[in-house]
Structures are given as structure tokens and as C-alpha cells.
Simulated assay, not measured.
Amino acid sequence: MSIKNTTSIFVDCHVFDSGFQGTRTYIKGLYFELIKKSDIQFFLVSSNPDHLASIFGNHSNVTYLKYRYQNKFLRLLIDIPQIIKRNKIDFAHFQYTVSPIKRCKYIVTTHDVLFIDFPEYFTFFSKIVNTFLYKQSAKFSEIRLTVSEYSKQKIQQHFALSNYLITPNAIYDAFFQEYDKEQIKAEVIEKFSLKNYIIYVSRWEPRKNQQMVLKAFIDLKLYKKYKLLFLGNDTLSNQRYDEVFNALNSEIKNEIITLKNTDLRTMLLLLRGADASVYPSLAEGFGIPPLESVAAKVPTICSNKTAMSDFTFFEDYYFDPYNQDDFNQKLQKILTQNVVSDFEIMSQKIKEKYSWQKSADILYQQIKKHE
């Protein structure tokens, strides 16, 4: 029990030192809400605290600190224990992996254990190491969190641990804001020379199944009317996509665009300007992008596997990511039929179900419980 007037929380924010990913969205959404709690003092730490401050803003109960080491293991073994001791931290919140030198109570969010059920998409070494590290990190932690019912069931099954609470990802308000489609399209044409296009927002990995979108683009001859836009950074090379792409002639290749290292504002602009959004991922611990595109009322089709099976409001806009014909038919539907009203209804359902405030309240109650 802390003897200070306020409870202090260290938040490992090293993911903000690299490109967009789900864990970064999670921390940002969760702590945007949680820092409104004046009875908690927050210590947000990364290699670039000025960048963190530009994201979260200046608050009397938030202190930004800088890591000395870029290396993950030096950070966990040296940096973090020293920061916790020096600032008399009560709780430390980590994503996946905690520091083995424990000097306060731990909160860990294990977003998924996909590497166990889908080893073909991960290296053998990473599977062995992550299975050990994630399980030990969970054992070390007083508060165990995950982001979906699917992930909760899989983690408890593989780690034989219980007491996991779900703090779901949610969607930023900006995605729900009204906008003029024609005005957005004009801006996209001016900035990117893109008129009619299909978008897939995701980093590059084999499990993201980019080749399914490319095959549909070819099979349906969509290149005659549309461009295909892939928006996301590289994580792992996708050999199956490369094989399909390299076999194309230059005319079709010219209709395929890949953009990386974009900021949130650019991503939102390109998403709003799209004629259709697709999400054929084979495995996810949650899956934020299809919810973001529906929130923006962009006609969207989504994989019905793993954690995305929780998105039941997709109904007729679900597809089997192992079935190319199913994907092609659903893509044709959203490109040729007037379905905007369906996505306006779905957008409202997402807004009601997924809320950062709700997730922050769950964590806040756990912190109070474990003080």
C-alpha cells in the first residue's frame, strides 16, 4: 500500500519510438482517458519524451522521462528498474514483456499469442522465446489484461493462467467525424493523384494476406477502374504476395501503390477518400483497421477469423480469408451496390460497443483494488 497521497504508474511507451502498431494505439487510447484521473501520477517513458508530450499533452499529473538504452534487454534489465526505484513507482504497465527485476506491482497487457496457434507466420526462435517471456511476464503481474475474448481464451488455454480482464481497443473520435466525401476525394487527388481506389491498411506480414487483395484486383480486372492502395510499414516480407506481384505486367503494377510511414492525419484522409476498404487478415489478437474504416463509413469487408469473429455486426460483409471466391464476391458487392446506409448503422454500433473510457475504467478499478 502506497503511503503517498497519489498512486504512481510507470508506462512503458517504447512503441512510440517506431511506426504505428496496435500496441501504440492501445496505450494512446487507454492513457488519454486514464490521465484524466487526478489521483494518479503518471510516468510515461520512451526514447523521445518530447514526442510523447506532443501526443499526450501537458498535464500536472504526467511526467515524461527518457530511456538511456535503445536495446530492449538493457531497457528491461537496467533502465526500467532504476526509473521505478528512483521515482518510487507503485505500478508499472508493460505490453507483453515485463522487467524481470521487480520493484513494484505489475500490469501486463498480452494482446495475443498468435505465434502459438499460427507458428507458420512466425520464426521458430520467436515462438520459443515469446512463449516463455509472455508466460513469465503474466505470472509476475498482479493485473493481467488482454484486448478480446478470443485472445483471453487462447492465453488462458496456453498459459494455464486465469484472472484476465478484457480492455478492448476502441476507435478515436476523429474516425467518427462527419466529412464531405467529394471534398476529401478532391484533396486526395491533389496530394496523391489518386481518384478511385481500394485501400488495405495493415503492416506487411504473411498473415496479413495482402496477396488475396492483389488476386481479386487481377481476377476482377479492377485495375481498369481503380487503383489498389496498401498503407502500412514492413514487419516481415510476404513472399506469396511478391510472387503474384512480380508476375504482373507493368500496366497493372502501375495501378498498385504502397505507402509507408504515414501519420494518422494522412491515414485518415486516405481512408475517407477510398471507395472500399478490405481486411483479409488470417490471424489477429483484435483487428482495429476494419473498425476504423467502418467508423469512417467507408464500405468495408472483413475476415471472419480469430478475434475478428467478435465483430458480428459485419454480418453480410464478413468473408472467409481462405476462400478467394468469397472475398471476390464481397468486394464486388461493396464496389457495385449502394451500401453506405449499412455502414452508417454499423458505425453507430461500433461507437456504442468500443470505448476507450470503458477500457480505462476497467483498468482504473483494478488499480484501486490492488493499491
Rank of each mutant, 00 (worst) to 15 (best):
K368Q: 15
F56D: 03
K351Q: 11
D39I: 04
F175E: 05
E255K: 15
T6A: 12
Y164I: 03
I83F: 00
V340Q: 14
H51K: 15
I107F: 04
K253Y: 08
T123E: 03
Q41Y: 02
R207L: 04
L30Y: 09
L229P: 13
K66N: 04
Q210R: 15
A216M: 02
Y226Q: 11
L34H: 06
P168I: 00
C104V: 09
I256D: 05
L282I: 11
Q41I: 06
Q332H: 08
H59D: 01
P100K: 07
A174D: 14
S148P: 04
L236P: 01
K215I: 09
F313L: 13
I89W: 00
K333N: 03
D263W: 09
P206L: 10
F91G: 10
H158L: 06
N233E: 10
R272P: 07
A53W: 03
K260D: 00
S347G: 05
I143K: 08
P289Y: 05
S54Q: 07
L165T: 15
Q183C: 13
P119V: 07
T63R: 12
K330H: 09
Q70A: 12
Y322S: 14
G57R: 01
V339R: 02
F343C: 15
S202L: 03
F16L: 01
F32C: 11
S250L: 10
G232K: 02
P81Y: 07
R272V: 09
C13H: 02
S250F: 00
I184M: 09
V147A: 03
R68P: 08
S347P: 06
I166V: 13
L269S: 13
H111T: 08
K349C: 07
K260N: 13
N130D: 12
R207G: 02
